[in-house]
Lab assay of single mutants.
Amino acid sequence: KEEVSSHTSPETGIWVTLGSEVFDVTEFVDLHPGGPSKLMLAAGGPLEPFWALYAVHNQSHVRELLAQYKIGEL
């Protein structure tokens, strides 16, 4: 988790977690339908608090999209 928390910018890579999985979403930030700034709120940390607020994320196609960016496990 400490390593994930240091990845919060395009220069270091933008990493997020979901459960025990780690994702590098650097290439996706500008494609995020809610805008880059919304995704950047989660940079370096867990997606769960944000996904709890926005139910649109609880769809299979969203998880499939995220899976493409998986880089490891906590």
Score class of each variant (00 low, 15 high):
residue 53 L to D: 14
residue 2 E to Y: 10
residue 53 L to W: 04
residue 50 F to V: 02
residue 6 S to K: 15
residue 35 G to S: 05
residue 69 Y to H: 05
residue 65 L to H: 10
residue 38 K to H: 03
residue 38 K to T: 08
residue 53 L to M: 15
residue 8 T to H: 12
residue 56 V to D: 03
residue 47 L to H: 01
residue 58 N to Y: 13
residue 30 D to C: 06
residue 18 L to A: 08
residue 11 E to P: 06
residue 70 K to Q: 09
residue 37 S to C: 07
residue 39 L to Q: 03
residue 34 G to C: 01
residue 63 R to L: 10
residue 40 M to K: 09
residue 19 G to P: 04
residue 37 S to H: 13
residue 37 S to K: 14
residue 62 V to P: 02
residue 10 P to S: 11
residue 4 V to H: 04
residue 11 E to A: 13
residue 47 L to G: 10
residue 33 P to M: 02
residue 28 F to R: 00
residue 57 H to K: 00
residue 11 E to R: 12
residue 67 A to W: 09
residue 49 P to W: 04
residue 31 L to N: 07
residue 40 M to D: 03
residue 4 V to W: 06
residue 67 A to H: 12
residue 23 F to E: 08
residue 54 Y to P: 09
residue 7 H to N: 06
residue 68 Q to Y: 05
residue 62 V to E: 00
residue 10 P to W: 12
residue 40 M to N: 02
residue 57 H to P: 01
residue 37 S to M: 08
residue 30 D to K: 09
residue 64 E to F: 04
residue 70 K to F: 06
residue 55 A to S: 15
residue 70 K to Y: 11
residue 23 F to V: 04
residue 66 L to E: 02
residue 3 E to P: 08
residue 26 T to H: 08
residue 6 S to P: 10
residue 73 E to L: 08
residue 41 L to S: 10
residue 35 G to I: 07
residue 43 A to T: 07
residue 51 W to I: 00
residue 74 L to Q: 08
residue 40 M to C: 15
residue 58 N to S: 12
residue 15 W to I: 13
residue 38 K to N: 14
residue 44 G to Q: 07
residue 15 W to R: 03
residue 59 Q to L: 04
residue 69 Y to T: 05
residue 44 G to M: 01
residue 64 E to G: 10
residue 41 L to I: 05
residue 22 V to M: 12
residue 22 V to Y: 07
residue 28 F to K: 00
residue 52 A to V: 03
residue 42 A to Y: 00
residue 41 L to M: 12
residue 68 Q to F: 07
residue 23 F to S: 03
residue 43 A to D: 09
residue 48 E to M: 00
residue 20 S to G: 13
residue 43 A to W: 04
residue 20 S to A: 12
residue 47 L to M: 01
residue 35 G to A: 05
residue 39 L to P: 06
residue 2 E to L: 14
residue 33 P to N: 02
residue 23 F to G: 00
residue 36 P to Q: 02
residue 69 Y to C: 12
residue 15 W to G: 01
residue 54 Y to A: 03
residue 61 H to P: 12
residue 14 I to M: 10
residue 55 A to C: 10
residue 59 Q to M: 06
residue 66 L to G: 02
residue 42 A to K: 02
residue 33 P to G: 04
residue 3 E to M: 14
residue 52 A to P: 07
residue 34 G to R: 09
residue 19 G to K: 11
residue 64 E to K: 14
residue 10 P to R: 13
residue 64 E to Y: 05
residue 66 L to P: 01
residue 42 A to V: 05
residue 13 G to W: 00
residue 3 E to K: 11
residue 20 S to D: 10
residue 2 E to G: 11
residue 62 V to F: 04
residue 62 V to C: 06
residue 8 T to L: 13
residue 1 K to D: 09
residue 48 E to L: 08
residue 4 V to M: 11
residue 32 H to K: 00
residue 27 E to L: 11
residue 4 V to E: 07
residue 50 F to D: 01
residue 27 E to Q: 13
residue 61 H to L: 04
residue 49 P to I: 04
residue 35 G to N: 01
residue 71 I to R: 09
residue 40 M to G: 00
residue 28 F to N: 00
residue 42 A to W: 03
residue 7 H to R: 09
residue 55 A to G: 14
residue 50 F to G: 05
residue 5 S to K: 15
residue 26 T to N: 02
residue 37 S to N: 12
residue 16 V to L: 05
residue 39 L to I: 15
residue 30 D to G: 08
residue 27 E to D: 13
residue 68 Q to D: 09
residue 73 E to Y: 10
residue 71 I to Y: 03
residue 50 F to T: 11
residue 13 G to M: 03
residue 45 G to F: 10
residue 30 D to Q: 07
residue 39 L to C: 03
residue 11 E to I: 10
residue 44 G to V: 09
residue 42 A to I: 00
residue 7 H to C: 03
residue 8 T to I: 15
residue 21 E to H: 13
residue 67 A to M: 15
residue 61 H to N: 06
residue 27 E to T: 11
residue 10 P to N: 12
residue 15 W to C: 04
residue 17 T to C: 15
residue 69 Y to Q: 05
residue 73 E to P: 07
residue 37 S to W: 10
residue 33 P to I: 01
residue 11 E to C: 11
residue 9 S to Q: 14
residue 52 A to I: 05
residue 73 E to N: 11
residue 45 G to L: 09
residue 45 G to W: 02
residue 56 V to L: 05
residue 21 E to T: 12
residue 4 V to Y: 05
residue 60 S to T: 14
residue 29 V to Y: 01
residue 68 Q to C: 11
residue 20 S to F: 12
residue 38 K to G: 03
residue 34 G to L: 00
residue 16 V to P: 01
residue 51 W to S: 03
residue 8 T to G: 11
residue 62 V to S: 00
residue 13 G to L: 04
residue 70 K to R: 12
residue 28 F to V: 04
residue 22 V to K: 05
residue 71 I to E: 01
residue 22 V to H: 02
residue 69 Y to P: 03
residue 26 T to R: 05
residue 63 R to Y: 09
residue 59 Q to Y: 03
residue 17 T to N: 07
residue 29 V to D: 03
residue 3 E to G: 12
residue 51 W to F: 06
residue 38 K to A: 09
residue 24 D to V: 02
residue 38 K to L: 09
residue 8 T to S: 13
residue 34 G to F: 01
residue 9 S to R: 14
residue 60 S to P: 15
residue 31 L to S: 08
residue 45 G to M: 13
residue 8 T to R: 14
residue 19 G to I: 00
residue 34 G to K: 06
residue 23 F to I: 05
residue 10 P to M: 12
residue 51 W to P: 06
residue 60 S to Y: 11
residue 55 A to L: 06
residue 63 R to C: 05
residue 33 P to F: 02
residue 70 K to L: 08
residue 30 D to P: 15
residue 48 E to D: 03
residue 32 H to M: 00
residue 51 W to G: 02
residue 49 P to G: 05
residue 54 Y to K: 05
residue 48 E to T: 04
residue 64 E to L: 10
residue 72 G to I: 06
residue 28 F to S: 00
residue 31 L to M: 10
residue 71 I to M: 11
residue 35 G to M: 04
residue 63 R to E: 09
residue 35 G to L: 04
residue 62 V to L: 04
residue 25 V to E: 01
residue 20 S to R: 12
residue 11 E to H: 11
residue 24 D to L: 03
residue 11 E to D: 13
residue 55 A to N: 15
residue 8 T to V: 15
residue 6 S to G: 15
residue 39 L to G: 01
residue 17 T to L: 11
residue 37 S to T: 15
residue 24 D to I: 01
residue 19 G to R: 09
residue 60 S to F: 11
residue 61 H to M: 05
residue 15 W to E: 02
residue 24 D to G: 00
